[in-house]
Amino acid sequence: MLYWEDMQVGKKRSFGRYEVTREEVLEFARKYDPQPFHLDDDAAAQTHFGRLAASGWHTCAMTMAMTVAEMSVVPQASLGAAGIDELRWLKPVYPGDVLRVETEVLEVTPSRSRPEMGSFKNQTTTFNQHDEPVLRFTGLVLMRRRPAA
């Protein structure tokens, strides 16, 4: 189990594999981001995307799915997140892309008011199969501290 004390500035992790399917791109867009370039090939062809592209919010959701899957492999004393900063969609994600995630711890801070927990900032970057970054954000994660022995 990873606890707050295990988070060290500069610590990097690489994980995940997510195959983006056309059906999932369309399903997500219909429910949550029904813009034409996420739903229609002809409409998408008329944009800078050039073809059907996944919603950026869908890319965030796929990144979260890989993160949670990694937490089942490497359990963490996570208490959720306090938020994200500087979210950037760097490159379109298309059906057929295969995504993966890299994280780096940027800052580690003990809680002033809750001694049983702390937080850490990390930069999360999602890459496609060409190792091109497609998404980047800075997250503030809350985590339990290691229990006293």
Results as ranks from 00 to 15, higher is better:
residue 116 E to W: 08
residue 5 E to G: 08
residue 65 A to C: 05
residue 114 R to A: 14
residue 109 T to F: 12
residue 134 V to N: 12
residue 56 G to K: 00
residue 69 A to H: 02
residue 32 Y to Q: 05
residue 21 T to W: 07
residue 113 S to T: 14
residue 11 K to R: 01
residue 25 V to R: 03
residue 25 V to P: 05
residue 28 F to A: 00
residue 21 T to Q: 08
residue 91 K to E: 07
residue 29 A to L: 04
residue 47 T to I: 02
residue 125 T to G: 03
residue 123 Q to R: 15
residue 115 P to A: 07
residue 30 R to S: 04
residue 98 V to Y: 04
residue 139 G to P: 13
residue 149 A to F: 01
residue 131 D to P: 02
residue 66 M to P: 01
residue 46 Q to D: 09
residue 148 A to W: 00
residue 53 A to H: 01
residue 21 T to G: 05
residue 77 A to F: 01
residue 98 V to R: 11
residue 26 L to Q: 02
residue 74 V to R: 08
residue 125 T to N: 10
residue 62 M to D: 13
residue 125 T to Q: 05
residue 9 V to F: 05
residue 1 M to N: 11
residue 69 A to V: 01
residue 99 L to S: 02
residue 110 P to Q: 08
residue 38 H to F: 14
residue 78 S to G: 15
residue 95 P to H: 03
residue 89 W to D: 02
residue 104 E to Q: 15
residue 26 L to T: 04
residue 140 L to G: 10
residue 149 A to P: 06
residue 64 M to G: 06
residue 125 T to K: 05
residue 101 V to R: 04
residue 147 P to N: 05
residue 111 S to F: 12
residue 66 M to A: 04
residue 64 M to D: 03
residue 31 K to R: 15
residue 88 R to Y: 03
residue 74 V to L: 11
residue 116 E to R: 14
residue 112 R to D: 14
residue 26 L to R: 07
residue 141 V to E: 12
residue 29 A to R: 06
residue 77 A to M: 04
residue 50 G to S: 09
residue 43 A to D: 15
residue 6 D to A: 06
residue 29 A to D: 03
residue 115 P to N: 02
residue 116 E to I: 07
residue 131 D to H: 11
residue 136 R to S: 14
residue 100 R to L: 00
residue 113 S to K: 14
residue 63 T to C: 07
residue 130 H to S: 14
residue 17 R to M: 10
residue 38 H to R: 15
residue 73 V to W: 01
residue 112 R to G: 11
residue 92 P to Y: 00
residue 32 Y to L: 09
residue 48 H to K: 09
residue 89 W to M: 07
residue 97 D to N: 09
residue 35 Q to I: 12
